[in-house]
Write a protein that binds this DNA or RNA. Structure first.
Lengths: 233, 233
DNA sequence: TCAAAAGTGTTCACGATACACCCATGG
DNA sequence: CCATGGGTGTATCGTGAACACTTTTGA
């Protein structure tokens, strides 16, 4: 590493060659009792038959997270979404013809609002657990995003982000079970969720096949409190 | 956001304007019973009197993490270091004259090996808890890095990365107490650390003022196991 | 022999886990 | 009236937290 032994640390540093930089977003939602993720076809010349996560350019006038959010909202008709930075991938082996840096975000959107206006690309929802062939290192990215989702679900309260505004406790439990891949005890689940003060009961009930279920609502003011506490140790 | 409504998702996307991208590293070490971080002076024309974290260019032929590691090893004479990605900062407000994206890493280096060869810049160790004036958003970055360090210390075993190869349990405990900012119970600390199987006793003792302390060594093979288990719930 | 740091076990409280039955509605 | 999903309480166990004294050495 002799050639980078003396880089000064001042802000006017510029190197001649700069890699290409882009944003990517891994969007999760629940659809047909399955965890799904949004994908679009890759360039058929470079990655024939592969899919990849939606990519966006970095807009110099906008913060990274705002750019990701705006671009996503151009693709999906969602009023709200949960968005956080996942990881930044870089390195020479990622793309055959360019040095590419991808700042990858992680998004959760609600079941009731994932209406797509198929703008420009042919975006599709695909199974997140058994995805189709993905281009570049996107399979690795998906694996990491799933791990992060499961981890967050155990420690925080993000599960609500995948549900409509009101939901029954059974729906919430099914969401957790689907993502964690294990069954949970009904009574313990309810106790922990309710004791956590994360959700509040509404006055509504949903009738179905059996006794109607009370509907609950997420308490947005409870977020900060929840983030530091373990829900499922 | 009408102008970005139709970005295709193919890999040959290129926008004309690309922001400048750089690497930064927040390095922590223990020195004189204090948690310290490596800083260098900012460009005096842009940020007079401020310091900033060491910055490196992105080398297109090398992975981001390897670049950060190589460049750091050009600055510091460390045989080993702990390095992980912290966060990627971007947006229009970060720098007065350019759109700048900083992929920031987080490093821990051992007490016994932080000999600096002051190459090029005037790198100095400064208190991490009460840092001097930092340029740009580097104060915010430091706050986040400290939070991450404390968090990791509670959940994993990174504390060893800040100590020499062999160390006494009291030294380890002092390290934890210094970083967490609270005192820990000696017996509980020892039990948890030893039960975790993270360290192993050596045959050596260190004589000092009082009864000699048994020296321990980190077990590198125990890392994976430890990462998933909580040490300090 | 004294000062200074190393080392060592037990008790208690709380939270996680396991577990089975009654309730309300629609067909 | 019965099938279907909704809703509820308790006993047990494991783990974290609090706590004080003995041991070894060098001065």
């Amino acid at each position: 590493m002799s050639e980078n032994a003396k880089f000064p640390c001042h802000d006017e540093n510029k190197t001649g060659i700069q890699p290409h930089i882009e944003l990517r977003v891994v969007v999760f939602t629940l659809h047909e009792d399955q965890l799904q993720t949004l994908l679009c076809p890759s360039n058929p010349a470079t990655f024939p038959g592969s899919l990849e996560f939606p990519g966006f350019p970095v807009l110099p006038g906008l913060a990274l997270e705002q750019t990701a959010e705006s671009c996503l909202k151009d693709l999906l008709d969602v009023p709200e979404l949960y968005l956080e930075q996942l990881f930044t991938y870089g390195g020479p082996q990622r793309h055959p013809s360019q040095s590419l840096i991808s700042v990858v975000y992680f998004a959760l959107i609600s079941l009731d609002a994932h209406l797509i206006e198929n703008q420009a690309g042919h975006y599709t929802w695909q199974s997140a657990e058994n995805p189709p062939t993905l281009a570049m290192d996107h399979a690795e990215i998906l694996t990491y995003a799933l791990r992060r989702l499961r981890y967050k679900l155990e420690y925080t309260a993000v599960g609500f982000e995948l549900l409509p505004e009101t939901f029954s406790l059974s729906e919430l439990q099914k969401t957790y079970e689907m993502i964690l891949g294990e069954t949970l005890d009904k009574r313990n689940f309810r106790r922990r969720i309710l004791q956590g003060g994360i959700i509040e009961a509404t006055e509504d009930y949903r009738s179905g096949e059996g006794r109607p279920a009370r509907l609950y609502r997420y308490r947005p003011d409870a977020v900060a409190e929840v983030k530091t506490r373990r829900l499922f140790p």
